[in-house]
Amino acid sequence: MPRNATIPAVQNQWTELTDGDVSTQVMFQNKGGYSVHFQATADANAPTSLGGAVEYQPGQGERDTLANVFPGVSGAVRLWVFAQVGGSVAIQHG
């Protein structure tokens, strides 16, 4: 299902940003005032650690496929954010 929203990044837990499996281009951006970590998964299960996650500073983001942004995640279809302080993230996908 398509999504175009700003999602709160819950402090110290993984928050799913995608609304179902996504194989098309996504846009995501850290809208908060602190750094956050993004990670893709190949299924609906949240990551279990920050291993392999990419840190983004305030204002940073991407517009590409999950496979291109996270080449180490085979079959990447879901996007997650982890914020140690909290914040918000913009997400858009078809």
Rank of each mutant, 00 (worst) to 15 (best):
1 M>P: 00
1 M>A: 09
3 R>V: 01
3 R>S: 06
3 R>D: 06
4 N>S: 04
5 A>Q: 09
5 A>R: 08
6 T>F: 01
9 A>I: 01
9 A>L: 00
9 A>M: 02
11 Q>A: 13
11 Q>G: 02
12 N>I: 01
14 W>E: 02
14 W>A: 00
16 E>I: 11
17 L>M: 02
19 D>E: 15
20 G>M: 05
20 G>H: 06
21 D>R: 15
21 D>F: 13
22 V>A: 05
23 S>M: 13
24 T>Q: 14
25 Q>P: 00
25 Q>I: 15
25 Q>E: 14
25 Q>G: 08
28 F>H: 07
29 Q>R: 15
29 Q>I: 13
30 N>S: 07
30 N>W: 09
30 N>P: 06
32 G>M: 05
32 G>T: 04
33 G>N: 15
34 Y>I: 11
34 Y>N: 14
34 Y>C: 10
35 S>H: 12
35 S>R: 13
35 S>A: 14
36 V>G: 05
36 V>L: 11
36 V>C: 06
36 V>P: 02
37 H>S: 15
37 H>L: 13
38 F>T: 03
38 F>W: 07
38 F>N: 03
38 F>K: 07
39 Q>A: 15
40 A>Y: 07
40 A>C: 04
41 T>G: 05
42 A>E: 12
43 D>L: 10
43 D>W: 07
43 D>R: 09
44 A>E: 14
44 A>K: 14
44 A>T: 12
45 N>I: 08
45 N>Q: 15
46 A>N: 07
46 A>R: 08
48 T>C: 05
48 T>Q: 14
48 T>M: 09
48 T>S: 14
48 T>F: 09
48 T>V: 09
48 T>Y: 10
48 T>G: 15
49 S>M: 07
49 S>G: 11
49 S>R: 08
50 L>N: 05
50 L>D: 08
50 L>E: 06
50 L>I: 08
52 G>N: 06
52 G>D: 07
52 G>M: 03
53 A>C: 03
55 E>Q: 14
56 Y>G: 01
56 Y>M: 10
56 Y>N: 03
56 Y>W: 07
59 G>T: 01
59 G>P: 00
62 E>W: 15
62 E>F: 15
63 R>D: 12
63 R>A: 13
63 R>C: 11
64 D>L: 12
64 D>N: 13
64 D>I: 07
65 T>D: 05
66 L>V: 03
66 L>T: 01
66 L>R: 03
66 L>G: 02
71 P>R: 11
71 P>K: 10
71 P>A: 08
72 G>I: 06
72 G>R: 09
72 G>K: 11
73 V>C: 03
74 S>P: 02
74 S>G: 10
75 G>A: 12
76 A>N: 04
77 V>Q: 10
77 V>S: 09
78 R>M: 05
78 R>G: 04
79 L>A: 05
79 L>V: 00
79 L>I: 01
80 W>C: 02
80 W>S: 02
80 W>Q: 00
81 V>I: 00
81 V>A: 04
82 F>Q: 03
83 A>P: 01
83 A>M: 02
84 Q>Y: 10
85 V>E: 12
86 G>M: 12
86 G>W: 11
86 G>C: 11
86 G>V: 07
86 G>A: 12
86 G>D: 08
87 G>D: 02
87 G>W: 00
88 S>E: 11
91 I>Q: 06
